[in-house]
Simulated scan of single mutants.
Amino acid sequence: MESQTALVVPDEDNCMVVYSSSQVPESVQSIISRCLNIPEHNVRVITRRVGGGFGGKAIKAMPMSINYYTFILPVAAACALAAYKLRRPVRTYVNRKTDMILAGAGRRHPMKINYTIGFKSKGKITALHLDVLINAGMSIDVSLIIPWNFVGSLKKYNFGALSFDIILCKTNNSCKSAMRAPGEVQGSYIAEAIIEHVRLTFR
């Protein structure tokens, strides 16, 4: 599988042509335009078939800016900055070991989940409340989408009245990142565990 790569070629009229292995080229365009202080239409991003990114090429291939937090993740943006300053093509290639540290070290978001469930005598679930603590690691990365995906994956079952308190926790661990359906795997797991828990009460 291709590691994190980027090639940036300065073009005429203060334009930049960016070849990036990112899964989200529209975000690469937006962030590079802000980084270089040029209009978005001056940044052309070309992404060939990514194939097998599994989330590792969603955020780690570019810098990410959410609200007032900025995390410089140095592949496409660093390459664009160098090409812009040098006015010549620049290519960045991250070797496999560094790529695994950059894209793979975050892994999935660990969670601590307590739940309270209500159900009728025949097993029909009428209510579910969850208290969820999500370990986001030392920086935000994609953590803001995890609660949304987590709750969305719970809705495969009709739990009746559904309520939840979800807290993203900043910890001293490595940052967690997108990895093959981020948040949805954890949500699916807890949904199945709850159904199994209810089933076992009727043995």
Rank of each mutant, 00 (worst) to 15 (best):
K60D: 15
N42Y: 01
A6L: 05
G152N: 14
M64C: 07
N67M: 06
P89A: 13
E2G: 14
I59G: 13
F119S: 03
L7N: 00
N95M: 08
H129N: 10
V17K: 14
C79K: 00
V43E: 06
Y115M: 05
V132N: 03
C175A: 15
C79W: 02
I146R: 05
R91L: 06
L200Q: 14
V151M: 09
T116V: 07
L130A: 04
V8C: 14
Y93M: 11
I145V: 15
D165K: 12
L162Y: 08
V142E: 11
L73E: 09
A191H: 01
M138G: 14
V90I: 15
P39C: 11
S65T: 10
I195P: 05
F159T: 09
M138H: 01
V24E: 04
D141T: 08
Q23V: 13
P147K: 11
P89G: 11
A127T: 00
I134W: 08
D13Y: 09
G104V: 10
D13I: 02
A61Q: 14
S20I: 04
V17W: 00
V24W: 01
T70Y: 00
I140S: 09
N37C: 08
R91N: 00
C169I: 11
S3I: 01
C15Q: 14
T116D: 06
G187I: 01
P89N: 12
R48I: 02
K120D: 13
A191C: 03
S22R: 07
K112H: 12
T126V: 13
M62A: 01
V151G: 01
G152T: 07
L86H: 08
F54Q: 07
V142Q: 10
I101W: 10
L7D: 03
I31H: 09
S21Y: 03
M1H: 15
A136W: 02
S188C: 10
I72C: 06
N67P: 00
T98V: 13
R44N: 07
N114P: 04
Y69T: 15
K85T: 09
S21W: 00
K124M: 00
N42H: 15
S177R: 03
A83G: 05
P63G: 06
A77H: 10
N67H: 11
I146D: 05
A58V: 11
K170I: 07
V132R: 03
L128P: 07
N149P: 07
D141L: 07
I166W: 00
L168N: 15
E2Q: 15
P89L: 13
A78L: 05
E12C: 00
R199A: 12
W148F: 00
C35L: 11
S27G: 02
P39G: 12
R34H: 06
I66T: 13
R48L: 06
E26D: 01
V94A: 04
A103L: 05
N149T: 08
A191M: 03
F164S: 15
I146K: 06
A77Q: 04
Y115P: 03
G106W: 11
E40A: 13
A181C: 08
L81S: 01
V142D: 12
V24I: 15
N14F: 05
